[in-house]
Design a binder for these strands. Structure first.
Lengths: 192, 192, 192, 192
DNA sequence: GATGAATGAGGCTTCATTCAT
DNA sequence: CATGAATGAAGCCTCATTCAT
């Protein structure tokens, strides 16, 4: 392992331990000392990699894989399989651990910058969905009683709701099942 | 205003200011000093009413009106109007303010006791819903392709999802609209 | 019980409870709130009887009964029975409780005024003893190899040593035995 | 001075200043701020070395040098010179300062853990003395009218009494004289 | 005289961050 | 780059004391 690799490994170790601890005790209740202790590095090392405690949050994988979403707009075909595929893709980027999901939300809510960025991401997600939904409505695949924007809103809300609900320890055993079920019902409601 | 009334007023003033500040800056970032300053009382007064900072949280109105829910099980009639009525009733107990809603979630997620109690409340909510849903399925009002328990899960998730989504500043202007729309689609998906 | 008696009773109740608590937790660690709670009165009542917390200490029976001591100088006869009598008299004014004895010392040591006053009392005690001892030496009752002042010092130290040693839970079961034994040996050492 | 030495120096500086201040104002009346100020370090530094304020007390040299005492049991010869030697050895470990001695007692009495540990030490001291005394009695060096255990009790009490009496500003100018005189009389009383 | 809510100074302790080694 | 001792601002909380009822 050369120098560059070692650095990346240290950085990742810190991030992982930080998120673990955030999941256990929450962001504010977690101290830099705890993080470095668990990561097996000195306290000063933390600040070699991050300007300050808050900055670790920026490396947190949020619940939205922006890249996957942006690919959606170039895809063709019926909306329901498309959405299923997208959801599965997004889930692949999420931790399969309730506490970690919940910790992500907790961090997001307790940090203005993170909250802002999450809101923006949700909004972007919605903006990508709108034309896809509108097209599906035009093709008659889904009902047109609601405007596409409203449907997009409800879709994003549904996604987020499933995550947080599951993160709290409720619902299905596997997150993917929880999300799948939610959208199954969602699309049934949208039947033309 | 007699002594007893004054006490209650002081206590309520503290709670109100606390929630306000939690909404503005988050729970952890809010100091007891800020709370008492805004409430116009001395710092020590706070601790005459609450054992410690954490304890104000227990007096926070959460997003679930347990009483309203428990009444549901004694009611009769078709499920959809019943649920609509229940939702409206619950919304009446919520703050009509996005930050306050979000602050409630933030507090809940950043506090183990509160999280536990919220989870329990959601679970109770679900348990009350299950027989109501099962009865509606038996009467053929809603689809039976999903077991009642699963539907109850999704209903609670839907409710919570709408709150947090709206709290983040997304969706409809009015919370009641956001919740109503969510459940409109939800029930459409459940059509037999 | 008339008004005056009631007042005295309340005052005494407060003092008793205070000393009890001092014995349990020490002077500093005991709060006025604890005292009034145990005494069954309101916090304000405490300050109707005492200017401040420190003042309760002034009512503490210290380990030296000044009156008894001052009587000594007018008494006649051989020193040993005289001293025995004095000791017994002084013990009669002490609490028969190790913690209480220890608490008295603790209070004395943790309070400058009290420490000063205790030192003064010991000094007075010594001053009363000196002529009595000198006279006994003159009568040949006790050895003259040590000056009377030195003997007086050792006597007072012996008395105090027995109290604190016993207060710490060591030595004889009964305080009077501990003191008696100490002085038995003390006088043996003084045999001419 | 390397890093490790510096650490030890800082720690010792804190302890020394703490004891100084305890002697001046008592344990409770001394604040961590005062200690660190006098030691010339930041307030936080104190807590790098001690978990909390109470913990400095554990590093305080108490009035009993346990090691010296335990050596006693392996020594031979007449008891009186042996005891003199032991006393001198123990005094060598004590501060030659009345306030410091008194502060030690004050701390001991105001802290349950410390009190417990002091009591245990006195008890150990006694247990070491008992066989030595019994042997001296068997050899006819000292009187057998009192059981060895009782004599040991009185010896320890005598030692402690001398310390506290001197600490209060009474008795001889030098502590060693006060202790020596006490034990001179003590052993005279024990003459066979 | 009794009450106990209100006060606020001041203590202990935490912890992100710096920096010399 | 790693280390961890040092920093000090800032928070929580305690508690003696006051005073209106």
């Amino acid at each position: 392992m050369n120098r560059e690799e070692k650095k990346r490994a240290t950085r990742q170790k810190i991030i992982d331990c930080a998120l673990e601890l955030f999941a256990e005790n929450g962001y504010e209740a977690t101290t830099v000392h705890q993080i470095t202790e668990r990561a097996g590095v000195a306290k000063g090392t933390f600040f070699n990699y991050f300007e300050n405690k808050e900055e670790v949050l920026c490396d947190l994988q949020l619940f939205i894989a922006t890249e996957e979403i942006s690919k959606l707009q170039y895809k063709q075909g019926p909306i329901i399989p498309l959405m299923r595929e997208l959801l599965m893709e997004m889930l692949r980027h999420l931790p399969f651990n309730r506490s970690l999901i919940l910790a992500s939300f907790q961090c997001t809510l307790s940090n203005k910058k993170l909250l802002e960025s999450a809101t923006v991401k949700f909004e972007e997600f919605k903006q990508v969905l709108i034309p896809v939904i509108a097209a599906a409505q035009a093709r008659g695949e889904i009902s047109s009683v609601m405007p596409a924007e409203m449907i997009a809103d409800l879709a994003v809300q549904n996604y987020q709701g499933a995550l947080i609900y599951w993160g709290m320890g409720l619902g299905e055993d596997k997150l993917s099942n929880q999300v799948t079920l939610s959208f199954e019902l969602f699309f049934k409601g949208l039947a033309p």
